[in-house]
Nucleic acid binder design. Structure first.
Lengths: 331, 331
DNA sequence: TGCGGGCCTGCAATGGATTTCATCACTCAC
DNA sequence: GTGAGTGATGAAATCCATTGCAGGCCCGCA
């Protein structure tokens, strides 16, 4: 920067101001400096700037990513969300640091906010350890969490109204005349538990008793969705519809049922949750509860940046909506 | 850090050395300092460190991510790769900066290497503008590219032997006795072009003329794969097998064919490319050419770090292998 | 002529760690 | 007893940009 200052015949202060678009510098001076900087192929050093300004314009995003060792598949939902977040952040000139491990995990001695690597964190999903999350957000409030709305958590949560979503999906199947509607999903994940709650609510509100044998909620995640669907079949329990807690689960279920010679949706109707893009691309396409990924991602970024600026911010509950994607899935 | 030094009764130099694990500091002193630092909840400021050391222990990863505006879907292949990269990088104590836009794109005035944000860049896919990529890597050699092996490019490329892979896939279909094997994929992407080359080679090497009407290579990408498969059907060209340039395309094709009442693989056998995890989870599962995502991701990280350390490094060609995932797809 | 402002610009302090070089206390060998 | 060698620590320079404050200049107005 000193050299640029020399070339332009001004001080470093002026160069700095010119490059950062400060209104304190004269129009002509600025243009001259900009031209010189460009021709010298000069860029300000981000680290020096971060150090001085005590902020990094970087947001950490925490995502459960595929684990190849154990052949664990991560849900394409995250890929969609990542795309939206990348757009929303870059629009506001923020960078995105991607991480798999939670800052409170064992072996992680510090976190990116504390050590000045990021200004805030977006956490995708509450995960299983709700208390660790709560402790962390108590210490570092510059956090937004995607997930379900549990009691009075004091961190900012963005996500759909999972109970309403679960109810919506289930009632949709009821309206189709389905009598034995099963639930498939792992309630260890808070969001899924809420969706299951919505499923139950649909029955209760319609004066029907919940048949517990129809709730398949043994612990599993997407990677085992297919196996679980097979277990459903083998269990001998009869059903004519399934509310699947995610689109990936729904797609697995459809495949499994079809392989078993069943007709979807004639024999068994399916509804999913998420509305991920890939579900459109091959099918059969789904009726699904939209997670409003676009809206949700943008909202998370907005709220986080507001909180970073010190504004007080409230948790956001996104309204749910049932969408039908293309033709051949459940009607 | 000054405060920690005070508490421990030593100088800042010593604290710094103790915290960074320098052998120059006495065992006892180190432990004392570590204990104090922990109890004071102190962490070194990353930006100051980066500034001083002129390196960030951060790698930028460039990925074509989903674009919701135009409903563009990004291939789950990238999600798998992201997981592997995240592991490989964190194992070596590197962070991952995720970006959608190429540093040479319009409106991007600088790049992360130049401004000190990252030590190197991993670029997923050569994309369409080969020259821009070449110019960029000429200026900044700390780059590894995932993609196809084109002539004598001087940047480091990691990827499977796409020609061999294409040939392998095609010959597999030939061995199954298929006579009219189609190709589906967009050769605008260099990797795909090479796979198509392999497809042609399979015919030539077996003394069969290539039927150009079987090559469906109109420009499109994964988002339109389904539409393209439909066009194939409507074209009236008869075929009894398809070599699809990616698993996503293959899955779309399978769906489309089945919706049209065809039996896969009896009427039409399918082979894909990538071996993505999600393909196992719902199906029908695929015969596919493995991209060795795990191996490839690790290799990219290794080579990049070596180059950053100044070692001279060579492009790596991963051998191809045909894998069959589960039961119900093409045999 | 003198004074209050407005507009630019420069000086110098600042942010927080790393690292070179010097120092100092000791030991050991000759 | 002296010099070399070793191990641990500290002082101070360095990385590079930002910013509060002070100052210079010009203008208008009294």
């Amino acid at each position: 920067m000193f050299e640029i200052a020399q070339l332009a015949g001004v001080s470093e202060s002026t160069v700095s101001r010119a490059l950062s678009g400060s209104p304190l510098v004269n129009e002509n001076t600025r243009n001259r400096i900009l031209k010189i900087a460009r021709s010298a192929n000069y860029t300000v050093n981000i680290n020096a700037r971060n150090l001085r300004q005590k902020r990094t314009r970087t947001i950490e995003v925490l995502i459960p990513l595929a684990e190849y060792g154990r052949q664990h598949m991560s849900d394409p939902f995250y890929l969609d969300m990542l795309g939206v977040l990348a757009d929303a952040l870059s629009e506001r000139h923020y960078d995105m640091l991607l991480t798999k491990r939670a800052p409170w995990a064992k072996g992680v001695e510090t976190n990116s906010i504390q050590c000045g690597r990021a200004d805030g964190i977006i956490i995708m999903g509450q995960g299983q350890d709700l208390e660790a999350l709560r402790n962390f957000t108590d210490l570092y409030p510059q956090v937004v969490v995607w997930g379900g709305h549990l009691r009075e958590d004091d961190y900012i949560v963005v996500g759909t109204d999972n109970v309403a979503g679960g109810k919506l999906a289930t009632e949709h199947l009821m309206k189709l005349g389905r009598k034995r509607i099963a639930f498939l999903g792992d309630p260890a994940e808070p969001e899924i538990a809420l969706r299951q709650q919505g499923y139950r609510k649909a029955f209760l509100d319609n004066g029907i008793a919940v048949d517990e044998s129809l709730i398949f909620s043994a612990p599993f995640d997407a990677r085992e969705a297919r196996a679980s669907a097979e277990k459903m079949l083998q269990s001998g329990v009869s059903f004519d519809a399934i509310f699947c807690a995610s689109d990936v689960i729904a797609m697995s279920a459809i495949t499994t049922l079809r392989n078993a010679g069943l007709d979807v949706p004639r024999d068994v109707a399916i509804v999913g949750y998420d509305d991920i893009l890939i579900a459109n691309s091959f099918g059969p396409s789904l009726t699904t509860v939209s997670q409003r990924i676009q809206e949700g991602g943008k909202t998370m970024v907005e709220l986080l940046l507001q909180r970073i600026e010190g504004k007080s911010v409230d948790t956001t509950l996104l309204p749910v909506e049932l969408v039908v994607r293309e033709s051949c899935g459940a009607p």
